[in-house]
Simulated assay, not measured.
Amino acid sequence: MDIQGEVADGFEPVRDAFVRNFEVLGDRGAAVAVYRDGRKVVDLWGGVRDADATGADAAPWERDTAQIVRSATKGVAAAVPLLLHQRGLLDLDAPVAEYWPEFKAGGKEGALVRDVLAHRAGIPALDRPLTPAQAADGISGPRAVAEQAAFWAPGTAHGYHPHTFSWLLGELVLRVTGASLGKWLAEEVTGPLGLDFWIGLPDSVAGRVGRSAAAEPPRTSNGLKTRPRREVSEAYADPGSLTRRAFAAISPLPDENDPGYRAAELPGSTGIGTARALAGFYAATLGDVEGGGRRLYTPETVALAGRELSSGADRVLVVNTRFGPGYMLHGPASPLLSPASFGHPGRGGSLGFADPEAGIAFGYVTNTLAPSVTADPRAQALVRALRSTTP
């Protein structure tokens, strides 16, 4: 495998793990980047740009190749409400209906902004799923979640909101700022920081984005295919389960290689970027970044990002999860670098996070989509290797 890029002295185990992801764990095209104390120490890429390409059509993954990161988008999108809160424009303890009056229907009048961010709002699914076109039109999604009756009293339990998070967060930001979340992010965060990350892909960069495709089932270190716990697999297989209904809030499943879907501003799923941008974003949450990037979060907001708001049994993922305001926190469902870490995985493999104690920021993107939802074996192999380099 021809791996491009560089690693700083002491971070060679990350390169070794990245190579092994191709040789053993089935990666076809991927990139990984790590910052430490604002300095880039890992920047690697390899494989092919399009996971479904073969032979002469298999163009290489290049330095600026970008890829859809699915739910890892949520961690980047979370910067918008946290920055609005940091600037005094959004009260996390206010009812959602204070900003979005139509939302109070269906027993949701008690839902707070922090409930939305911590997957406690009680509407992970829709009684009437949306088509991909409706999901992307900017109107149907917010209307559907506003009209949807809560599956539990908001704030009393938590369950991952895979798709509805997009419409909840997007509409909330629109009501507060008058701008779409993707536009606000580009103008206030990714643009000023020079990050190649978009929620709503511009036509001008569409040619840099690789095509994704399904991977073979992941294997353990001894080469055996992994299997989910029985109760988890049963929840995903049961059409009536909240798990299945939550992931089917958009039905049929969107084609994430479709240009229209990539251009949609869905803060829970359509983020597209490079591993360098994903890691660079998390580096900027912690402090200044080499090359002129200024820190995004005050120390108080960094502490808030890693503060546990939800923990324990997840009504959708059917495992124990931990969430802060918009971020998944270190735990059994998604092991990160340490208990101080905050970030978000993407279904299929991608992962981004920051660790304030170690000063580490991490980004991994792949075009080879595994069945994993939270703890992808390839991402976890890289995290373990990174952990071995951290004092």
Rank of each mutant, 00 (worst) to 15 (best):
D2M: 10
V7E: 05
D9L: 08
G10C: 06
E12P: 10
V14Y: 06
R15V: 05
N21F: 04
N21G: 15
V24W: 14
R28E: 03
V34K: 05
D37Q: 14
L44K: 05
W45P: 05
W45Y: 11
V48W: 01
R49I: 04
A56M: 00
D57P: 05
P60D: 05
R63G: 01
A72Y: 09
V76R: 02
V80P: 10
P81G: 12
L82F: 04
R87M: 02
L90V: 04
P95E: 04
P95A: 00
P101G: 07
P101V: 01
E102V: 00
L112M: 14
V113D: 04
V116P: 11
H119R: 06
R120M: 03
D127K: 14
D127I: 01
D127Q: 13
T131E: 07
A133H: 13
Q134H: 08
A135V: 08
A135Y: 03
A135D: 07
Q148T: 06
G155R: 07
Y160R: 14
H161A: 13
P162I: 08
W167M: 07
G170R: 11
V173P: 02
R175H: 00
V176S: 04
V176G: 05
V176A: 05
V176R: 14
L181T: 09
E187W: 00
E188I: 00
V189S: 03
P192F: 08
G194E: 06
L195G: 15
D196E: 15
L201Y: 01
D203R: 06
D203E: 15
S204I: 00
A215S: 15
S221K: 09
R227L: 12
R227G: 03
V232E: 11
D238N: 15
P239Y: 06
G240K: 09
S241N: 10
L242W: 06
T243C: 15
I250G: 14
S251K: 07
D255G: 14
E256G: 03
R262K: 15
L266Q: 15
G268V: 09
S269I: 13
G271F: 02
I272A: 09
R276M: 03
R276S: 14
G280W: 13
L286N: 07
V289G: 06
E290T: 08
G292V: 07
R295Q: 15
R295T: 02
L296I: 10
G306M: 05
G306F: 03
L309R: 12
S310C: 10
G312P: 03
G312T: 11
D314M: 05
V316C: 06
L317W: 01
L317Y: 00
V318C: 10
N320L: 00
F323D: 02
G326T: 11
Y327M: 11
G331Y: 04
P339N: 08
S341I: 01
F342G: 13
H344G: 02
G346T: 03
G352H: 01
E357T: 14
I360H: 01
F362V: 07
T368R: 11
P371H: 04
S372M: 11
A381Q: 08
L382D: 08
V383S: 08
A385Y: 08
A385G: 11
